[in-house]
């Protein structure tokens, strides 16, 4: 009873005030929400500006061709050289290798989840894939360090197992969750009629899946691949733990350094031009990522049409 009377009193007090200030109040809220709305745009702009401001000076000083196409990275020598071709190539090969292993595996798994397995199994495997997506990258790195690196060393008889091949294996596992979930959505979006028509024409279930469903989900699967590329090229910590981290031109069984790990590994102790060059590497990486995002957006847009 008591609380009710208090409430009515409050409403009586509030009502006239709301009328006076309601419009202004609503306007303030609208402005606040608009600010929140555009804050993401603001962040993107700020990030871009900061990367360009801090990345360009070193490129200017070193020379863009020397920086991008130079094959030697010896920043602390008497006559230092800042060529990031080894990093670019290592990132490229690493990503390509991860895609080569991870994408077929991921797509087949997505086919399994959407078309072949029953609801129960599918739920369990989906849960597993979700869990995989949530595991921190350093944990992948740790397992890679303890399991994959020694295994690669033993199997191929190498002095050191921390190399490009180990990094590819770890990356292949790490891109699986994104590849699987995006291809799953794509496969689920294929109209049932396509499959029914194919089955009615006498194709087996498996033939239908691989000759009708998968081709029909082509652009969605392409989006999955592009997303995987983005994940692989941007991964730093796990790669740092298994790739050996030496600035060599990449060989499959040689110790390599990626664009991401080049930034991460020297940032803590570098100074002067070397530090600025690291920002330039980040800028190059950022440009790659933006290009990949652009492609991803185009692919998704085409699919929507």
């Amino acid at each position: 009873m008591k609380s009710e009377t208090i409430q009515t009193v409050r409403i009586q007090q509030k009502a006239p005030r709301r009328n006076f200030s309601a419009e202004i109040f609503e306007k303030i809220m609208r402005v606040l929400f608009s600010v929140c709305g555009f804050i993401a745009v603001g962040f993107v702009i700020v990030i871009t500006i900061f990367l360009i401001i801090s990345g360009v000076p070193a490129i200017k000083e070193i020379g863009i061709t020397k920086f991008l196409f130079g094959t030697k990275w010896i920043p602390t020598a008497d006559s230092p050289e800042f060529g990031i071709m080894p990093f670019i190539l290592a990132s490229f090969y690493g990503t390509f290798g991860a895609i080569l292993i991870g994408v077929p595996l991921g797509i087949l798994c997505a086919v399994f989840l959407t078309k072949i397995s029953g609801k129960r199994i599918s739920e369990v495997v989906s849960g597993a894939v979700n869990l995989m997506a949530g595991i921190p990258s350093v944990v992948y790195g740790l397992v890679g360090m303890i399991v994959i690196v020694p295994a690669v060393r033993e199997i191929f008889g190498l002095p050191d197992g921390a190399n490009l091949f180990s990094a590819i294996l770890v990356l292949a596992v790490m891109i699986l969750p994104s590849v699987i979930s995006v291809s799953e959505t794509a496969l689920n979006a294929v109209p049932k009629e396509f499959e029914e028509a194919s089955l009615a024409l006498g194709a087996t279930k498996t033939e239908t899946i691989f000759k009708v469903t998968v081709p029909a989900a082509k652009s969605g699967i392409l989006a999955a691949v592009v997303l995987g590329v983005g994940r692989a090229i941007g991964e730093a910590m796990a790669v740092m733990m298994v790739s050996g981290n030496v600035a060599n031109m990449p060989k499959i069984f040689g110790s390599v350094r990626f664009l991401t790990t080049a930034v991460a590994s020297e940032m803590s102790y570098s100074s002067g031009l070397q530090r600025q060059a690291l920002f330039s590497i980040a800028l190059v990486l950022f440009i790659f990522i933006m290009a990949i995002n652009l492609v991803l957006n185009l692919v998704i847009k085409r699919e929507k049409k």
Partner: peptide
């Protein structure tokens, strides 16, 4: 405006964490 914001959000989601680390350090 909505498209622009959504594009920005997607871009933020695609930026790798090492770049966030670097930009966070700078800013």
């Amino acid at each position: 405006a909505v498209q622009l914001i959504e594009l920005a959000t997607e871009t933020l989601a695609g930026i790798p964490s090492i770049i966030y680390g670097l930009v966070g350090m700078l800013i």
